[in-house]
């Protein structure tokens, strides 16, 4: 008897954007201590890599969890067009009130893609650089955050 299998599809997207890590809740010294050179008032940028994972049953007729013909234009519209070659702090409304750390960018992208109509969004993973990556699956860790 064959065990049931679970399939997911992960598609990689790219955008380049600038940001500045700075919170009005902190003093200039605290911002500098907390965010270091990322708080430079002129901002800086990254080539972001976004891995979008879609899960769910494989459609017997198409052999697909999600049709890239639907997923690509959806992600393009919801994320790439909105984020690519933008200054995230000013040009993405959600980051007027939240610091555009890649943690927050990850959550915001998840929020935007959650409504993908044809299959279930499982995970958003972002590489801010080849050395830093962030993942969000929609869950909270449920642990108390340490104060900065």
């Amino acid at each position: 008897m064959n065990r049931p299998l679970k399939l997911s599809l992960t598609r990689r997207y790219h955008f380049a954007a600038s940001h500045r890590l700075h919170s009005p809740a902190f003093s200039p010294e605290e911002n500098l201590r907390l965010y270091g050179k990322c708080s430079n008032p002129y901002g800086h940028g990254h080539n972001y890599v976004v891995d979008v994972t879609i899960g769910g049953p494989v459609d017997a007729e198409t052999g697909m969890v999600a049709n890239l013909g639907e997923l690509d234009p959806f992600v393009e519209r919801e994320v790439v067009e909105a984020f690519d070659h933008k200054f995230l702090n000013e040009e993405v409304a959600e980051f007027r009130s939240a610091v555009p750390t890649t943690e927050n960018v990850c959550r915001e992208i998840f929020r935007r893609l959650k409504h993908f109509p044809s299959a279930r969004l499982e995970r958003v993973r972002i590489e801010e650089t080849s050395k830093n990556s962030f993942e969000f699956t929609g869950e909270s860790a449920g642990v108390e955050q340490r104060k900065p």
């Binding site: 049931p4 299998l5 399939l7 598609r11 494989v58």
Partner: peptide, 17 residues
């Protein structure tokens, strides 16, 4: 391709394909 992969695992909830 480097931009597309599928993962297959055992479905512990038994709700898969």
């Amino acid at each position: 391709s480097p931009d597309l992969f599928a993962d297959c695992t055992a479905d512990s909830n038994g709700s898969g394909t």
